[in-house]
Amino acid sequence: MKLFFHIGRYFMLLVQILKKPEKASIYRRQIILEMDNIGLQSLGIVAIISVFMGAVVTIQTAFNTDHPMLPRYAVGFATRQSIILEFAPTIISLILAGKVGSRIASEIGTMRVTEQIDALEIMGVNSSGFLILPKVVAAMIINPVLIVLSMFLGIFGGWVVSAVSDVMPVSNFIYGILYEFAPYDIFYALVKTVVFAFIITTISGYYGYFTKGGALEVGQSSTDAVVTSSIFIIIFNLILTQLLLA
């Protein structure tokens, strides 16, 4: 029963969030700010994880496909596909669910328990819209940028491995990276990213907005936000893959 309560309240919140903003100029400024908070400040972690994961994926693929029947360039090909299709959009979104989701839930949750949200309401501001909508829009714009970056860096990590170690020849790797490249894969990855961005920001916003109590509950909301948005990312990953690739 609790599940239905949450789902109902979540959709009611969505309706509230999507109401026409009081003042477009203020929302625009908030969006820019949030793009910085959500996007630019995640650059570091996204970059590090991407490079290392790309390197590891390459090494793993190389060792596990070391068979005379398989051409060596298959390693480059497999690395590229796994990075573009799953690793960059899904894993990085999961990382962002942890980083951005906890931040959003605790920020909004703190505003709730210190009555800052009440203060907004009193002024006649649509508090849920004002606090959550700019984050949703910002993430839906900036996350695809992060994901594309992650794709490049992941592949770069793989290239570095093949260049500096003797896991496999660089020329084979590059041939594999370019082999039968389908732009549709990028489109698929970005659609997923945008949906995941929506999931992360709205679910975290939801948990933050409906926090009750004090500092302890803010921590709880932030954990719930990360757990729930991760689960929904995984579920929607399955659904979208089925819809877009099958």
Partner: peptide, 10 residues
């Protein structure tokens, strides 16, 4: 309105 706890936007 002035809230008991101030409720300033931090």
């Amino acid at each position: 309105m002035l809230f008991q706890g101030g409720a300033l936007f931090d």
